[in-house]
Write a protein that binds this DNA or RNA. Structure first.
Lengths: 181, 181, 181, 181
DNA sequence: CATGAATGAGCTTTCATTCAT
DNA sequence: CATGAATGAAAGCTCATTCAT
């Protein structure tokens, strides 16, 4: 992939996260990436398609990571490790999670990425369910939904609701819950 | 308050929820409310100020409801009742919750309503903490954050992540958790 | 004339002078005069007509003053007195002179007040020529034009060209010129 | 510089002079220049900036001409030549002088171009004073102000006050004054 | 006399996109 | 690959004016 195309993707990711998709103009992206409009339209057929490519890249990484992570540990420890991983990334890449949230809740962008959003959700659900299947086949679906809701709720509150959020304490509480399951 | 101003607020609320703030034009609002552009700008100084007025109205209602709801029931039952109320409203007014989410995650609108968002969050936290104080003074803050994360996570998953979400089952699971606390 | 109508005229005069006719809106005038739009349109048929009334009032005063000032003094002293009067007013009412200038040079307003502007010019020319007729019947027209040009040029430079203008010195130079004519 | 940008400048100059800055819309300019609105905003960041560029171009030309015109003639002849040049241009480019006047008297445009207007005034004053210094060092400043006032007054009367102005006769009178100085 | 809700045309400006070079 | 001039639709907003009360 050409160097300049990457610069465009990076610039767009940054700006979409900072200002939102609708408030980022092609001109903004060109300026940030230091390329011309013509070049952007050489690599991408539209502004939407930049968004799609950014989102797809991440989905692909998620699938890849998911494939690798088939651990043979005890299920409770797998849950703990999953929690640790997610919260680690949440802290490392706040902006990126924020971008994903605003894409998912903005009706327009949501519509554009509907299929991918659903795909991601089902990957995550399956991945979590695989773990809970080892704990309780009967309640595994319900437990998975609850687990995901907890993760999403904490992320959401951390990222956009509370100014000073005791993330570590709450993470610990969650780990405690599942380690004594 | 004049009839037409209300029509504008209703139209704007509907469209902001359906299409997002940035994708709703003043022309759209005028068409939906069946009024002229001039009239909208006679009542509101800008598009932003419509959003602010909508959001403020709801915040005010929240404060009012909060003041009224000081129940003298057993704390566990208060939690159950709170859960029931929130999920009832979630199902009744899906669009409105969606509007709130997309406002909170869109950087621009978030900035505009920063103060109000924080105000709302602290009202909710206090309100929940008042209940948990009666259960465990020591852990009440932590428990409140967890409770709110659970509610928010479920709402988020119901509204925007999963196409077919077993909301009732999950609500029941949550009620079970807190009734046996 | 009603009190409120006067307030409108005063407000409009002030704002037209400060911001120019085109940059003053009816809403601005209403706010400044503390009256409603309906009232302004009760007294004036349009924004233009306010301008016309302001300008006409001044023209009428000029005519009146001109009628009174038929002095029987020596012509040179009449010139000196005219110079003194004009410069006195220039210093007293800078804003008002500025208003007149910008009305006269803005093509739109100029067109509206074309006839009055010409009327004023001819009154002034006649008035000055009457004095110069007593000095030199032959050259009186030319001398009048020169005199008016001198007055206008000095006013213009004082009001809008130079930041620190030695008005008094120049006035004295002019008086010297005509007293030794 | 691109051909179309020049067309925009020409169109804007013409229309600003004919109708005034405030009464000329971007749509007017586009129509006159036969270009799209987008193109105008590609070359100029705002309507104001068109005005600034027009004005700056002229100021630059003035400075350039001023630099070249250091003549070694007798001072009185230099004055005569300056008068001839100014009146020649005044007759050639009536519209352009009118544009300058209405920019200088319209409070808004005046504010925008405040610095340039002052710059121009000081260039002209210096240029004239250099000549009068050779006639009378003592009175050169005063004489310069008077000279400029005469020129400006005559221009103003010619351009906007009197319908039939004996420009040539008055120019001759002025030349006579300074040739017999 | 007096108010201010209401209109609709028009304003400046932005923007995704195209295309000749 | 790469540029940036050029387009035209649509955005947010202003404003003189009207009219029911």
């Amino acid at each position: 992939m050409s160097n300049k195309k990457n610069k465009v993707i990076e610039a767009a990711t940054k700006l979409f996260a900072e200002k939102g998709f609708e408030n980022t103009s092609m001109a903004n992206i060109c300026l940030e990436a230091n390329v011309s409009k013509g070049l952007v339209y050489h690599h991408f057929k539209s502004k939407e398609s930049i968004l799609i490519e950014i989102f797809t890249n991440v989905t692909d990484k998620m699938i890849e990571m998911n494939a690798k992570s088939k651990s043979s540990q005890e299920p409770k420890l797998q849950l703990v490790q999953l929690i640790e991983t997610i919260f680690y990334q949440l802290e490392c890449d706040k902006t990126f999670f924020q971008l994903n949230l605003n894409i998912m809740f903005q009706p327009t962008t949501r519509q554009i990425l509907k299929e991918q959003i659903e795909k991601r959700a089902s990957i995550l659900l399956n991945s979590v369910k695989n773990i809970f299947d080892q704990i309780s086949l009967e309640k595994s679906t319900l437990l998975s939904y609850v687990f995901i809701a907890e993760i999403d709720g904490i992320s959401l509150n951390y990222l956009t609701v509370f100014d000073e959020y005791p993330l570590d304490m709450i993470k610990q509480e969650l780990i405690n819950k599942y380690i004594h399951f």
